[in-house]
Design a binder for these strands. Structure first.
Lengths: 255, 255
DNA sequence: CAGTGGTCTAGACCACCAC
DNA sequence: TGGTGGTCTAGACCACTGC
């Protein structure tokens, strides 16, 4: 088991990873127990545990205490970032049409729930919306999204209260065509989108909701909708498990 | 040090992270030694080591064997994905103008070197370029990029040999306006760009070049240039440390 | 040579699950 | 109750750095 210079726990992680990727350990099945693996490879249990913790951070396995270590089924979800906001993609409410599409494309069943609260904007959000200190009130639309009842995405939209308060933008059901259509009706049509993608470690509540193993990173997408006049009218922060999503973008190349 | 239910090594990692973010341990300075921290917090050295390994995976510290653990200076680099390919952004050769801009925006000194080889396309590349099995030959342009001589990005462009062979696209110096201009001159003007962003663990050579600590993930950007006729004429794979980059996109919202 | 981190083990105790 | 993983320690050996 030793021989090389790579540490034993990394070598073991590599072997287990290969075995998983080759299908030797099928998705949903249990890995051999840690004492078992320790005996099989002639290493101590903490060494096995360390190897497994690498696979956990990579999202390849998930642990259920008392039961064992389970190989994760991990279909990668593709997010079509540009087309998802186009009119024909957004029947239904919110961008729900787009999310539905992404999940159904994998043969899975999408579901989501929305919660709406009024609150003062957190500092970073206020910055992104260009809100003055005395204009910080926003409507926050918090969406939790699932595929086959497995949580896969957290997305919170922030809209300045002067635009959203008392309108359907503050309703849980934002109506036909989603919130994009509501913005247009309210005279704040979104004309331009910007998105910023970052990777960071997960916060504790994100870990809980997305059922992330320890040390799994997340991708954070800051989505901003701008009016033709250049006012940011919506900031939506999407959070997903970094290893489970793939983001697609496209644009014409002006010459 | 115990008291809570979080493990000691996670608590310690949290404390060290706070201390780093608050500036108590300045970028470039040494963390206290592991035996020192072990004594200070009343835990064993392996426990301290485990805490430090979390910070390494997050890119907050870097270890030099025999010297100690050093706090990383980590300015986040922003990649303006859309505008970087526009004409006014690409004086110089390659997209070098854009990379230069990104790095200079941080007050750092950009540098890059390019290596060109002819080779059969790896399977995934052949797929992305839509190459038939008997047309797999490509020109690979491998670029290594640095900020203040610190490696920050690996990018390899693959161009079908039937387009690039014998042209300036196969030269290390691709000439004024970069390769985008060469494509246009050769009758293969790029009219549309697609990019796909994924996060994955780093390969060994990427770890070496980017000087990644163990378990630091990378972002992989698959950039494809398409002609107006819908032929993919260039695939460029960018690899960067996931925690050190931020990607910006923007597009108009057609209604 | 002393000090740094990298790793490993044996043994232990705990929380949790299934039977 | 026995099996699972989560964690921790004491002690050890190693490779590397800097003096």
């Amino acid at each position: 088991m030793s021989l090389e210079k790579r540490s034993q726990y990394r070598q073991l992680a590599d072997m287990l990873r290969s075995a998983i990727e080759s299908g030797e350990y099928a998705p949903g099945s249990l890995l051999p127990s840690e004492p078992d693996l320790a005996a099989r490879y002639g290493v101590s249990r903490p060494t096995v545990n360390r190897a497994v913790s690498i696979l956990r951070a990579e999202g390849l396995v998930r642990v259920e205490r008392g039961r064992g270590t389970i190989v994760t089924e991990l279909p990668v979800i593709t997010r079509a970032s540009v087309t998802r906001y186009q009119r024909d993609q957004r029947e239904g409410s919110g961008a729900r049409g787009a999310f539905d599409h992404e999940i159904r494309a994998l043969g899975l069943l999408p579901r989501s729930d929305t919660e709406v609260v009024a609150m003062p904007a957190p500092a970073a959000i206020a910055g992104a919306l260009g809100l003055a200190d005395d204009q910080r009130e926003v409507i926050a639309r918090r969406r939790r999204m699932y595929a086959n009842d497995v949580p896969v995405q957290l997305a919170t939209s922030y809209i300045p209260a002067d635009i959203a308060a008392g309108t359907r933008l503050a309703d849980v059901d934002s109506g036909p065509g989603g919130i994009i259509s509501r913005f247009a009706e309210l005279g704040h049509a979104q004309a331009r989108i910007t998105e910023t993608v970052r990777v960071r470690r997960a916060a504790e509540d994100e870990q809980d909701f997305l059922r992330l193993e320890d040390d799994q990173p997340v991708m954070e997408i800051w989505h901003t909708g701008w009016t033709a006049a250049g006012r940011p009218v919506e900031v939506c922060v999407h959070v997903v498990a970094a290893y489970r999503w793939s983001l697609d973008y496209e644009w014409p190349l002006a010459d």
